[in-house]
C-alpha cells in the first residue's frame, strides 16, 4: 500500500509541476479552499483570543489593534512620502508622464484578510473578496504602505494573495539612469532582493534609503508607480558589474488587516 501511495503522490506532483493537469488540480484546490474558508473565518475569530493569550499578554488584543491603527497611519504617511518621491522622479522623466496609468485612477476592491497563511515556506494570505467582486488571478494588491502582492487563486467569494516576500513573487522596479530591476521575494521574512536587469543603459548606482517603485513596463503585471520599498543594503557580488540590493517593503505582512485589489490587467 505504501508503494501505491508513493506512486499516487509522484503522479500528482508530476501532473501539477508539468502543467498538464494543473487546471483540474487548481480547481480541486479552489473547491477545497472555498469549503474551508467560512469555517476558517469563524474558527479563527473564535480562537484569536487564545492565540493572543499565548503570545504572552493579557491585554494583547487591544494593544495590537491600537498598534495596528498607529502603524497603518504611519504607513499612509510613508506612502505619501514615497508617492511624492516617485512623482518627482516622474517629473524628471517628462516623456512618459502623460501616458502612465496611476493607481489613483484604477478601480479597486477593498478586502479584509480572513486568514494569514500558516506555511513556514511561503507568504500568502486569504481575502474575503473573490470572483463575484471582480477579483481575478494576476491582479495587483496594495495596502496602506504600497505594493502588497498579487492574486494567485480565486474562488467565488475568496482569493489567495501571494505577498511581496513570497519566493514566487517577482515584480519589475524602476532604477536610476533608465534601468529596470527585478524585485523577488525571499520567503518568510521582511526583505525583497533586487537585481538589475542587464540593459544598454549605464550600470545604476543604488543607494541605501532610496525608494523603489514598480516600473510598469509594457505587459508588466503591475501598473507603474506603486511604492515597493526602501533599499536597506547594496552590494556588488564578486565578479559582477551590477549591484544587488535588499529592499525592506513598505507593507509589512504581519500587520495587514485590509488590502485593496486593483481591478487592473496589463494593456
Amino acid at each position: 500500500m505504501v508503494a501505491l501511495l508513493v506512486l499516487v503522490s509522484l503522479t500528482l506532483i508530476s501532473l501539477d509541476a508539468s502543467g498538464r493537469g494543473r487546471s483540474t488540480l487548481q480547481g480541486v484546490r479552489g473547491a477545497f479552499n472555498a469549503v474551508l474558508a467560512p469555517v476558517q473565518s469563524g474558527i479563527h475569530a473564535a480562537l484569536r483570543p487564545v492565540g493572543n493569550f499565548f503570545t504572552g499578554a493579557v491585554d494583547y488584543g487591544r494593544l495590537q489593534a491600537e498598534n495596528t491603527l498607529l502603524r497603518t497611519e504611519l504607513d499612509q504617511l510613508r506612502a505619501t512620502e514615497a508617492s511624492a518621491a516617485f512623482y518627482q522622479q516622474q517629473a524628471d522623466q517628462v516623456l512618459a508622464l502623460q501616458h502612465l496609468p496611476f493607481v489613483a485612477g484604477i478601480p479597486k476592491v477593498t478586502a479584509q484578510i480572513i486568514n494569514i497563511g500558516s506555511s513556514n515556506f511561503s507568504a500568502s494570505v486569504t481575502i474575503d473578496r473573490g470572483r463575484s467582486a471582480g477579483v481575478l488571478v494576476g491582479q495587483p494588491v496594495v495596502a496602506a504602505g504600497g505594493l502588497a502582492g498579487s492574486v494567485v487563486a480565486v474562488t467565488a467569494h475568496t482569493a489567495r494573495v501571494d505577498l511581496i516576500t513570497d519566493p514566487r513573487f517577482v515584480v519589475g522596479v524602476s532604477l536610476p539612469d533608465h534601468n529596470t530591476g527585478s524585485a523577488a521575494g525571499q520567503g518568510p521574512g521582511d526583505s525583497v532582493r533586487v537585481t538589475v536587469v542587464p540593459a544598454s543603459a549605464p550600470v545604476p548606482k543604488l543607494h541605501r534609503g532610496e525608494i523603489l517603485s514598480t516600473s510598469g513596463l509594457q505587459m508588466e503585471l503591475f501598473p507603474p508607480g506603486i511604492p515597493v520599498g526602501r533599499i536597506a543594503t547594496v552590494a556588488v557580488p564578486p565578479g559582477e558589474l551590477e549591484p544587488v540590493a535588499t529592499v525592506t517593503p513598505f507593507v509589512n505582512a504581519a500587520r495587514l488587516g485590509y488590502v485593496d485589489v486593483l481591478l487592473w490587467s496589463p494593456q
Binding site: 505504501v2 501511495l5 508513493v6 499516487v8 503522490s9 509522484l10 503522479t11 500528482l12 506532483i13 501532473l15 501539477d16 509541476a17 488540480l25 487548481q26 480541486v28 484546490r29 477545497f32 479552499n33 474551508l36 497563511g117 506555511s119 515556506f121 511561503s122 500568502s124 494567485v152 487563486a153 489567495r160 501571494d162 513570497d166 519566493p167 514566487r168
Partner: peptide, 24 residues
C-alpha cells in the same frame, strides 16, 4: 499521506503531492 494531501490542498505555492509524499 492523507494529512499531507490536506496540507497540499490548502496551499498554492507547491505542487500538489509534495507534502503528501513527504508525510507519507
Amino acid at each position: 499521506f492523507s494529512a499531507g494531501l490536506l496540507a497540499d490542498l490548502s496551499l498554492t505555492a507547491t505542487p500538489l503531492g509534495v507534502y503528501a509524499l513527504s508525510w507519507c
